[in-house]
Design a protein around this nucleic acid. Structure first.
Lengths: 250, 250
DNA sequence: CTAAAAAAATGATGTATGTCATCTTTCCAT
DNA sequence: ATGGAAAGATGACATACATCATTTTTTTAG
C-alpha cells in the first residue's frame, strides 16, 4: 500500500499506474516525467536526449521476487529502476545467496557485465513490485560512446562502487556479525528512507553474511537495547547514532 | 636476486638498471622498451602514442614496503607498475590490514579514485623492490578523453574488478578459512608465476582475512597433505588441482 | 474465512577460529 | 661474523557463531 502510493507518484496518471501494476501492461512511462530520473545518471538530460532515450527503451512491470538476470548468462541490455527495490547477489557454492547491493529507484543495473565482456557475475531480482525500464545493449553502448557526460557518470559510478566493495570486504573480514548488522541497517536505512526497512530475515542475513537464526537473535538484542523497533516485517531505526557506534568507525 | 634478474629485463642496459635500483635514480625507462607494457592497457599503443606517454610520465625506484598512496588522501596521478609487486589494502577499525589485491607488472594502480572524485578508499605499498612509473592526473584524464581504446580498456578493467570483488565478498562471507586460503593460493600462484609466492605470513593472513596463527597452522596442514611445499618465505604450489578442490566451486 | 506454506522465533549443542603467551628461527644492519 | 629485531611456529584456552530441531506467527492462496 505504501509502495503503491510511491509508485503512483512516478506515473503521470493514476489510471496509467493501475494499468502498469495490475494488468502488467508494458505501457511506456516517459523518461521526461519519471521522478526517479533526477537522481539517476540521466538526471541532466535535455529534451531531445530524453526523446531519444524514450525511443530506445521499453518499460515493464515486475512482480515481487522476479529475476532481472542470472549469474552466468550474457547481458543483452541494462535495467533502469523506475520504482521498487532490487537485490543484487551471488550464490556461494552451496547455493546460499550473498546480497552485494540493494538498488533503489533511479539506479541503473547490470551495466558492469556490458563492459567487461564477461557473463554476469551476479544475479538480480526484485524485492517488491517494481517498474523497470530496459535499454538494449547496442543503444546503450552508442549512448556511452556519444555522450561524454553520461560516460563519465558511468565511470564515476563504477569507481565509487569499487571503493565501496573494498570497504565491504574489509568489514566482512574483520567485523563481528553484530557490527556488520549495525552497518547494514545504516545502509538500508538510507536505501529505504523515508520508508521503513522491509526485507525478510533471510535476505537481511544474506546481506550481513550470517545465518538467519543468528540474525534474528541480534535483531532482538538491538530491539532490547532500544536502537530499533520491529514491526513484524518492517524495521524502524530508532537510534542511528547508537547504531553507528556499534558498527565502529567508518 | 631473482627479482633483480627480472628487473634487468625491463631496462635497456644493465648499467641503467643498476642506477635505477641501487642509486634510486629517476632515470627514464622508455615505454617503448618496457616489457611489462605488452600485458598492460597501453599494450597496443603505436609509436607516437608511446612518445607522448613517455613525455608525460616519470619513473621511480621504490624499496620494499614503501607506500604509493594512503587511504583518505586525494589522488594526483596514477601508478604504472613496471617491475615488482604491490599490495592494495584497507585498514579496519583496529588498524589491521585487509589486502584487497596484489598487483603485478603491467598493472595500472590508483585510477579508481581519479574518476570517483573521492579520496582513496585503499592504500597501496610495495611488497618488494619495484620500478614504478607515474602519470599526472591531468595527462591521464586527457589520454582517457582522447583515446577511446584506452578508455574502453579502463572501463573493462573497472568492470572486471567489480565482478571479482562480488565473488571475493561471497567467499569471505560463506567459505571457511581453509577454503579461502586455498582460493588465495591459487590467485597468488597466478600473480607470482613463474616465481614462487613470496609474502610474509602476516600479509597472506591479511589477504585471506584471518589471524596469522590460524594461517600458519593451515599452511602446515596443506604441507602435510602434499599440496604445497614451504621454502621458508617462499611457497610452492605442488598440487593445484587439489587446491581447487579444497577451494570449492568457482 | 480457512488451510497450507512460508517466515520468524527460540533452545540446545558443537566447533572453527581468534586470542594470548611463549619459544624458535630467520633476517638484516653494523 | 654477530646480536638484536622481526617473522614464524606452537600450545592452551575462550567464544562467537553455525547448525539442527522444534514451535509459533504471519502470509498467501483457494
Amino acid at each position: 500500500m505504501s509502495s503503491f502510493h510511491k509508485m503512483s507518484i512516478n506515473c503521470n496518471f493514476i489510471s496509467e499506474t493501475l494499468d502498469c501494476m495490475l494488468e502488467k501492461s508494458h505501457k511506456h512511462v516517459s523518461c521526461a516525467s519519471c521522478s526517479a530520473r533526477k537522481d539517476s545518471l540521466f538526471g541532466n538530460y535535455c529534451d531531445h536526449e530524453l526523446d531519444e532515450l524514450d525511443e530506445s527503451k521499453s518499460c515493464n512491470y515486475y512482480k515481487k521476487n522476479q529475476p532481472l538476470f542470472i549469474e552466468g548468462s550474457f547481458p543483452r541490455g541494462v535495467f533502469c529502476l523506475n520504482g521498487g527495490k532490487v537485490k543484487v547477489f551471488t550464490r556461494g557454492d552451496e547455493g546460499k545467496e550473498q546480497i552485494i547491493h540493494i538498488a533503489k529507484e533511479g539506479e541503473i543495473i547490470g551495466f558492469r557485465a556490458m563492459f567487461s565482456g564477461e557473463p554476469y557475475k551476479v544475479s538480480a531480482s526484485t524485492l517488491e513490485e517494481c517498474n523497470i525500464c530496459y535499454i538494449g545493449k547496442e543503444d546503450f553502448l552508442n549512448m556511452i560512446e556519444s555522450n561524454a557526460v553520461l560516460r563519465n557518470g558511468i565511470m564515476k559510478e563504477l569507481s565509487k562502487e569499487l571503493g565501496e566493495r573494498a570497504v565491504f570486504i574489509t568489514n566482512m573480514a574483520q567485523k563481528s556479525v553484530r557490527e556488520r548488522l549495525a552497518f547494514a541497517l545504516l545502509i538500508l536505512h538510507d536505501v529505504y528512507k523515508p520508508e521503513q526497512i522491509n526485507l525478510t530475515r533471510e535476505d537481511l542475513a544474506n546481506f550481513v553474511g550470517t545465518a538467519t537464526e543468528t540474525l534474528i537473535r541480534l535483531l532482538k538484542d538491538f530491539k532490547e537495547e532500544g536502537v530499533i523497533e520491529i514491526h513484524t516485517r518492517k524495521l524502524e531505526i530508532v537510534d542511528a547514532n547508537k547504531l553507528e557506534r556499534i558498527a565502529g568507525a567508518r
